[in-house]
Write a protein that binds this DNA or RNA. Sequence first.
DNA 1: TGGATATTTAGATAGTTATCTAACTATCTA
DNA 2: TAGATAGTTAGATAACTATCTAAATATCCA
Lengths: 98, 98
Amino acid sequence: MALGLTLKALADPTRRDIIKLLKEKDMTAGEIADCFTISKPSISHHLNILKQAGLIIDERQGQNIYYSLNTSVMEELIRWLMNVTRKEGGSADERNPD
Amino acid sequence: MALGLTLKALADPTRRDIIKLLKEKDMTAGEIADCFTISKPSISHHLNILKQAGLIIDERQGQNIYYSLNTSVMEELIRWLMNVTRKEGGSADERNPD
DNA sequence: TGGATATTTAGATAGTTATCTAACTATCTA
DNA sequence: TAGATAGTTAGATAACTATCTAAATATCCA
């Protein structure tokens, strides 16, 4: 999964707020939209970007589409950050995973 | 330090490449620019964004300006990500640091 | 002081993105 | 099947961003 997509997705404050909501519980697109003042289509746009980045998963249940967090992509980002942050001295395997 | 600035700064591939270079060793603006095909002013622009985000530190030494990594901001981002990633069950202190 | 080197700042431009309204698609239910 | 509800897609626009060239600033050295 491309790191750039993940970071771009997380760079927007509305999308980070959506992620914070989904950390608490899965929600439908409409429930998510109700938490914001911007329009439903704008929220749909943000959900799509989060989905493309692999940060969330969607699943239709009847009329509703439920969104939930997919933390594995964030874990990947954490690994990248830890690698950049880490001081010298690791094994060859630990270096340059990117 | 604002999470948004950090994430926006990291969302650009050129800036991530600069960070990877600086992980290896401190470099001058010119040395950094020599590693890319884009113009020096563009690199200067990227360095400024990284600096504003607190991801790098600059220090003039004579004619040169040396840039170095500041990992503390990245550690802050790691903490945010780990919090979002973490499943329920932590102490009240661990929840919602944002 | 004047020229050379290193870097940034200014101003312009092309491409990207967040937002909106209007229209469309999908699903349920009576 | 028709109407209602949930959500997305289309198209337009304003704001933002990455890039460039040209000009300005800062420092060193002869």
